[in-house]
């Protein structure tokens, strides 16, 4: 790891100021991506601004079906929150299957979505749940927030402070994990509301998370796995790498979507 300077702000405003004063600073969430990346010298920020000690970024509130999750909330906290499990167990399931227990003790939802790794789990949930992403400057819909491979609408000095969504009628998540990294080789999150179904796919798209409209349309007609039987996803725009070809991922999208619907239907 190259030299860096560590900072520990206690408020969002202080964190933003510290980043502004740094030559090439980075916000540090749980560090489960940034620290390994710095160790490999693939990132070399002059300063790291640790967001773990900012109280206003913490905590989960569930009021009726309205959910708000602070950006600094760890995967473990989301996985084990009983109030959240009562209205949207799919997001608890998703959080409980990120990485491994030690990673889940550190990694945060804000860090995950700000990084927008094309194989991360959370972006699919945000997109399918039609979540709002709250930042130090504004609030954006998930559709506006995720802009491509590791890309978000965030400005350099903008911090995700929370995400919020209304729990859908039903939701489910299924992923085919890479056997080594546990990142999604393909993961699908489905959310059913009276006005329709949203389906988001992670791990498969060359541009990161995306909505599978053909699957959405089919599931909006009937929210059953069998309705996806005849559907074939195009391989165009999907990733091909040593783990899986684009065609394989295209097939996995349908398979994972079926499993997600099955999970949602209980």
């Amino acid at each position: 790891m190259y030299q860096t300077t560590y900072h520990r702000p206690s408020s969002v405003a202080e964190a933003v100021r510290m980043l502004g004063e740094a030559a090439d600073g980075k916000f540090l969430g749980g560090g489960q991506t940034l620290i390994p990346t710095m160790k490999q010298r693939l990132a070399a920020p002059s300063d790291v601004i640790d967001l773990r000690h900012i109280a206003e970024l913490k905590g989960i509130t569930v009021s009726g079906r309205d959910v708000r999750i602070g950006a600094g909330t760890t995967h473990e906290e989301v996985a084990n929150h009983s109030g959240l499990a009562a209205v949207c167990p799919a997001i608890c399931y998703l959080a409980g299957h990120i990485g491994d227990p030690h990673v889940r003790h550190m990694g945060t939802i804000g860090g995950s979505i700000s990084n927008n790794d094309p194989a991360a789990d959370y972006p699919s949930a945000m997109l399918a749940l039609n979540a709002m992403i709250h930042t130090s400057k504004r609030a954006l819909s998930a559709d506006e927030f995720f802009t491509g491979l590791f890309g978000t609408a965030l400005d350099e000095d903008e911090i995700v402070t929370a995400v919020s969504f209304t729990a859908p009628e039903k939701a489910g998540y299924a992923k085919f994990p890479n056997p080594a990294s546990r990142y999604a080789l393909t993961g699908v999150f489905v959310a059913k509301r009276p006005e329709g179904v949203r389906v988001a796919v992670t791990g498969a798209g060359e541009d990161g998370v995306f909505r599978a409209t053909a699957i959405e349309n089919a599931l909006s007609r009937s929210f059953e796995p069998s309705v996806l039987d005849g559907i074939a996803m195009p391989a165009d725009g999907l990733m091909s790498d040593i783990h899986a070809s684009a065609e394989y991922r295209a097939n996995l999208i349908v398979v994972m979507a079926k499993r997600a619907v099955q999970a949602a239907n209980g």
Binding site: G31, R52, H102, H105
Partner: peptide, 11 residues
């Protein structure tokens, strides 16, 4: 439990 290779001492 955390991975001490994935956390700065300062953290």
């Amino acid at each position: 439990a955390v991975k001490s290779c994935t956390m700065l001492a300062a953290q």
